[in-house]
Structures are given as C-alpha cells and as structure tokens.
Design a protein around this nucleic acid. Structure first.
Length: 286
DNA sequence: AACTACTCCTGGAGGC
DNA sequence: TGCCTCCAGGAGTAGT
C-alpha cells in the first residue's frame, strides 16, 4: 500500500516531469474521488499551470495557480505518469493485470498536460481521495490533520523521535508508530520493517526502550527508508511480498520465509487487527 | 491517553 | 468451472 516511500516517489516524479506544465484537459470517471470546496471543480484546472508539489507523510499537495489539490492514495491508490514527452513513473499500489494499458477499469482520473504528459490516478479499492482547496484553506487543512514530523524531514532527528514517543509512553510501539500524529509517513509495511531493523517487538512500549534501543529504532526507520526510496518503495500484493521485486521488504509479507539476519522463519501475527510480520528470534516478545 | 469496533471498497485466494 | 466467503488495509469517528 502506498506509504511514505511510494508517495515520495510520486512527488519526485511530479516535481521533475510536471511542475511548470499547463493542464490542457482531464477525464474524471469516478466522481467520488473528488472532494471540492464550494465553487471549485476540475474544470478550473484546465489552462492552469502546476507550480509546485509538496509532501507531508502520505499526503501530497499540488499547487496550481487557481487552487490546490491534496491527494491521499490511502490503501491502494497509484499515480502513473505516461507520455511521449516524459520518462514517466508509477508510484503506489500496482494493478498488475492492467499495468500495460492505461486507462483501465480502476483508473479514476486522467490529467492531460501540455507536451503530451499524462498523469493517471488509479485505485482498485476506491479509497483514494483528491481534495480541491483554495490556497488560503491549505494551512488550516493540514493543521486539522495534526500530522507529526515527516520521517524524511531533516528536522526529524533521534531527539525528535524521543520527544514524540514521550507523549505515548504506555501504548505499544506498532500502533504508536502507525499514528500519523506521532510521526508522519510510516504505514503497516514500514513499521514492520523498521521494528525488524531495530530488533524490537511491535508490542514493546515506548517507555520500555533503553536509550540504545531508541537510537536503534531511529536508525531502523532511516535504514528502512534508505532501502525503500531508491527502488520506489515496496511491492506488496494481497499481503504478500513479490519475489520478482528483490529482497525488500525483508519481513513484511514473508510469513514462513527465513529471516535475512538469522534464518528463523518469519511469523505473522495481528497487532490492532493489522497483519504484523516479525522474526521471533531477532524481535523477542516483551 | 489508549484501546476497540466500525466504516468506506474491490479483487484475489481458498473452500467445496 | 463457479459459486461463496474471507481477507487486505489508512484514517476518521464513536464508544469505553
């Protein structure tokens, strides 16, 4: 599912291939995708230029001259760029049966840009949303989300992680790290990967972490991001890691496969109703 | 604060 | 082959 690395892959692709281009047309095939502030519609984008793209956690902000778009891909959204004039990219949840020909039955929005560049939004689960907001409503919109610091923001240091976890001492690590108001960007896959990197069980509490373990958790998050970003994120289908996508992720979606560190079979449990993958040897239960 | 339960939705997988 | 059921999950909300 799209988490920080997948959304960051989209942000980079859009920044490099679409910023400065003018929208020349669009097709919206699933109207529920759009949540528009009064008076705004996609019609107002035609002729508008994309000025910038910004990401906080799993949210994307596209700023056009007349108004802004906030995009969240949720569980199964994907942004795909195609066109004769650009390299293109695909970021987010793959739709393997139809990857070859866009648009397909799960394509909800096509944005046509000048110079033969096309941006598609696809979503097999129909949870993704695009909000249309006046520029002056954007700060309030993000303030209401109460997002914690973005994991890739240079301000996110081990001291910041310690301070954020100090607000949630009793709760278990996995639900805490999934809470976007604590830190922003990690989802089910990357929390599992980060905790495995750190050798921490998901049901440990923040209060139980030694200083070394807390530093290890920070390093685990950063190592996980460093693995995921160069390859455009993880490729998980129906809860299973895809073998053709290499060894990443290391534990998520790999029930029964050997832990890359010690060889012990990875086990799957549920924490807060979320499928959770751990190495029982590297991540001892509390 | 921290937890549970529920909601949105569809496609893939497993059972028979 | 073809039904049927279950499961996957980000985030918002409500209830305890």
């Amino acid at each position: 599912m799209p988490e920080l690395p997948e959304v960051e892959t989209a942000r980079r692709g859009i920044a490099e291939q679409f910023v400065g281009r003018r929208v020349v047309g669009y097709e919206l095939t699933r109207t529920f995708l759009i949540v528009a502030a009064p008076g705004l519609s996609l019609d107002g984008l035609v002729g508008a230029t994309l000025e910038s793209v910004y990401r906080h956690g799993k949210y994307l902000l596209l700023t056009f001259d007349p108004f802004s778009l906030v995009v969240h891909l949720k569980l199964a959204g994907q942004l795909v760029a195609r066109g004769g004039g650009i390299p293109g990219f695909a970021a987010g949840h793959p739709v393997p049966a139809y990857d070859a020909d866009l648009p397909h039955k799960s394509t909800h929005l096509r944005l046509d840009f000048a110079g033969d560049a096309v941006l598609y939004l696809t979503d097999i689960r129909h949870f993704a949303r695009v909000w249309l907001l006046p520029h002056d409503a954007v700060p309030d919109y993000f303030a209401r989300l109460k997002l914690g610091p973005d994991v890739l923001d240079p301000v996110f240091t081990v001291d910041v992680l310690r301070a954020r976890l100090a607000t949630r001492t009793v709760g278990r690590l996995k639900p805490t790290l999934l809470d976007q108001s604590v830190i922003a960007g990690l989802g089910n896959i990357y929390v599992d990967e980060s905790l495995w990197q750190a050798g921490l069980h998901p049901e440990r509490t923040a209060a139980s972490l030694s200083p070394a373990e807390l530093t290890g958790l920070y390093d685990g998050i950063m190592r996980t991001m460093a693995h995921a970003l160069p390859i455009g994120g993880a490729r998980i289908l129906n809860g299973k890691a895809q073998p053709e996508h290499g060894e990443f992720p290391f534990v998520h979606g790999r029930e029964g496969q050997p832990c890359p560190r010690c060889g012990t079979p990875i086990i799957k449990t549920h924490v807060n109703h979320r499928g959770t993958y751990t190495c029982p040897h590297c991540q001892p239960a509390p």
